[in-house]
Nucleic acid binder design. Sequence first.
DNA 1: ACAAAAGTGTTCCTCTTACACCCATGA
DNA 2: TCATGGGTGTAAGAGGAACACTTTTGT
Lengths: 248, 248
Amino acid sequence: MTIETNTAISVDCAVFGFDGKSLKALLIKRRYSYEDLSSEDLKLPGAMILENETLPEAANRVLEEFTGLTGIYLKQTNIFSAPDRVSEKEMEWICRFHGVNTRRVVTVGYYALVKLNQGMVNYTTRKGAKWIEVDSINSLIMDHLEILADALSTLQKEIVQTPVAFELLPKKFTVYQLQSLFEAVLGVEIDNRNFRKKILSSGIIYPTGEFEKNVAHKPAQYYAFNKSVFRKAMKDRFRLSFINNWTY
Amino acid sequence: MTIETNTAISVDCAVFGFDGKSLKALLIKRRYSYEDLSSEDLKLPGAMILENETLPEAANRVLEEFTGLTGIYLKQTNIFSAPDRVSEKEMEWICRFHGVNTRRVVTVGYYALVKLNQGMVNYTTRKGAKWIEVDSINSLIMDHLEILADALSTLQKEIVQTPVAFELLPKKFTVYQLQSLFEAVLGVEIDNRNFRKKILSSGIIYPTGEFEKNVAHKPAQYYAFNKSVFRKAMKDRFRLSFINNWTY
DNA sequence: ACAAAAGTGTTCCTCTTACACCCATGA
DNA sequence: TCATGGGTGTAAGAGGAACACTTTTGT
């Protein structure tokens, strides 16, 4: 019985952004080619964990490197621990690229949400990263596509139960932007009247009194997220009979 | 920038069982004392991962060791990666006990569900493990109490959305047993008439035609879980407008 | 007879759903 | 004047919540 301690642990981050139309993920080109591994291959931003670092700290370090931001929304998804998840060739590339010497890498998936505006696009572009429409991503290196799919499915679960939607929108947003975000993330169409009714009656967003300007249609009002009402709603939920939330 | 590859990865399993009255967890005494670490200290079953093993494989290995069963319900919860989650003294104990030489252990929490019957209790007792009422557990070694709390909260979320309840019950069970399980896991009281109405009309359990014998009250009918109806119900759910499941 | 759990119906009310038109603005 | 998205109400139906008594059995 051999105990394996020569295992490196890495984090890989699926970073999502919303441009008002579609859901995008932040991808980077594999830097440096190695044999027939192409530098055109796309990957998720990631890193090996350092000696005195927790996994969330490592993930935050990666996020700061590529977005320049700290304190952005971050949540662990799954662990990918198959001994053969990294091919021999990829393993050689990893050891060379990261300057490590290890026989195995277990990676922990994270998903992160950022407010995607022009400044963010400029920043990530300078870092050599690109925002790609999630629906159009069909190939990434190693098991990164699986990590991304996992992250998307986590986002879909969370967006209907927690206020993560507001992590993807500017501080002030229109009801339509919020609705479009739900539609993009969940891949469904939503009736606008019912959506407004539900979201506004819940009180978790409030009108700011400001309106769009210079738009070729009736200007929409900007709303903002009401944290305290949301927290109250969460507490209330636990006072309801459980049967309320039961979904069999 | 030092890359840490001398990190061991372990799994710790919170194993739950239901005895008809209360929810219990499987705990083992720390074997072998070391300095002032007591052999009376309780811990979750766990192990270091082996060289060619995935994390779920390691968790299943631990479960088989303590319960004699394979293929039991198992799900990953969280990762505990704080560099100081294991004190120096505990670290020495770990290296001695597991025969490893490492400076850091990152652990992955799993939760597992087993059918708790007399045979199971006999088996685990022979293995030196004990079933302890979850409500009464208030101290475990290292961060195992946190791992257990995490697992419980995962179970509470899952039991109302997936058929995990049936992993904790015998193949044939009464409606009351099922209700008691929900009450024990969620810590709530449930109206019996509404519970029956909901569970029976959903069709996810069906009457077997068998009844209790030798009980000092009207004998209850035994029911069984209907997998195919459950799967159909899951599919249907995704045809509903998302707003249906929305919980703001 | 009594103790103990099994089993059963109804009413009220809230929430979800489905659905179509006019409004304000810039081009 | 037209194109674009903003914004509004109502009626029908389904599902959740609250609530109390009779039945069957063993002791």
